[in-house]
Amino acid sequence: MFGILRAYILIALWQARPGLAGYDVAQAVTFCFVTQAFIGPMQLFGGGLAIPQRIRSGDIALDLVRPAPLQLWTLAEDLGRAGYLLLVRGIPPMLVGAALFGIVVPDGPGRWAGLLAGLLLGVITSFGWRYLVALSACWLADDRGVNIASTVLTTFLSGLVLPLTIFPGWLGDVARVLPWAAMAQAPADLYLGTAPVLDTLAFQAFWAAALLALGALGTRAIRHKVVIQGG
């Protein structure tokens, strides 16, 4: 439903400005449904992790003493869910888009390989961010604020609301280098073939690694807090 409305708005914009941001109308429409398909696997509305609940119930202490590291184990769980959601939540919007407006499909195995790598890195970046947000529940009495703020930032700066390539001036320059761009804009560009593959993957890999590293530090901090201070 929302994807369809967004597609109409993008069509109107591209009719007024053909070729804007290097997309033609078909690519703009495709962008809309591809990013719609990312909502599930990339969890663009936030959440998806059980950690805040486990922190509130105190069960996090049990998770921290397991032999498998909390962060890796949660990541594995999230990747599994992302794969599942890509199929059940990703395919329907693409079919709707194809049926109502027609969408473009990547050609050649190179594009598909780049897309798959981009999807994987996008999910890891998204996980890295949501993991940090989830850990913050350990220090905050009311985590609603952080959650809503995270959802707002993610939907807007990932490219889900509008392609980051049409954000004007400094806002566009900033938005395109932030980690959220790796979650929807980057894989969508890989799908459309509108960005250099290796540069895009390198950009995503950088943020995935950076956020995972921060997450590892965060895990150490909560272990310290939970184990030493007893929660």
Partner: peptide, 28 residues
Amino acid sequence: LLLALGCATAALDLAAILIIFANTTSLG
């Protein structure tokens, strides 16, 4: 907090309109 976040969420729709019109002078 809720007041500020409600405004921020609602501001997204407004921001989208402003960004669209940074690229064009007329829509539909």
